[in-house]
């Protein structure tokens, strides 16, 4: 009989990822990144592998509500985590407001970076609402007060998501539309 898929070894662990509200119990080699677990094991290919080094943002997902580069997270270190991918943002047939705005504003060309852009924007909007500052937030801005998302703020806060088609103007417009 083949060894069961639920067996741990020195170099693999059994762990549970809650992805878009559904628990997935997986046996994973410790080298598996969260990105590869999502794409290869869970079957959700929305999060993209761009650079695979945390430099492009195409792999951005929300981990326990916060945006992160899933290519740099080891799945083994996220046992029990709640992960939201681009596939989990819509409410049934109703798109998330950020998704809707990307469609309305034509905020993409090839679309490869789009799932990462959208997940990053969702996380960024929550950070701004919680009063997280950015490098361009004026020093006199009261700590904890929601940040006013000017185009300058949006560009700075989204700088971890590259778009090689250069759709930035419409990406900034789309996010700005949701922010106001």
């Amino acid at each position: 009989m083949e060894p069961t898929s639920q067996q741990e070894t020195a170099h693999s662990s059994v762990l549970t990822l809650h992805v878009n509200g559904t628990p997935h119990t997986l046996t994973l080699d410790h080298r598996t990144t969260l990105l590869d677990a999502l794409r290869e094991q869970v079957g959700l290919t929305g999060a993209k592998k761009g650079c695979d080094h945390g430099q492009c943002g195409a792999c951005t997902v929300l981990v326990d509500g916060r945006r992160a580069n899933s290519c740099l997270l080891l799945a083994a270190a996220h046992n029990g985590a709640h992960v939201t991918t681009v596939e989990g943002l819509a409410d049934g047939e109703r798109l998330h407001p950020v998704q809707q705005a990307f469609v309305a504003r034509d905020a993409l060309q090839c679309g490869y970076c789009t799932p990462g852009q959208i997940c990053s924007a969702v996380g960024m909007l929550a950070e701004a609402a919680e009063g997280h500052p950015s490098y361009v937030t004026p020093p006199e801005h009261p700590p904890g007060a929601p940040a006013a998302l000017t185009a300058h703020e949006i560009r700075e806060r989204m700088s971890g998501n590259l778009c090689r088609c250069g759709a930035y103007p419409n990406i900034v417009d789309a996010i700005g539309e949701v922010a106001t």
Partner: peptide, 9 residues
């Protein structure tokens, strides 16, 4: 330093 995603991690 870095990006919003990286600073969260």
């Amino acid at each position: 330093g870095a990006s919003g995603q990286l600073r969260n991690t």
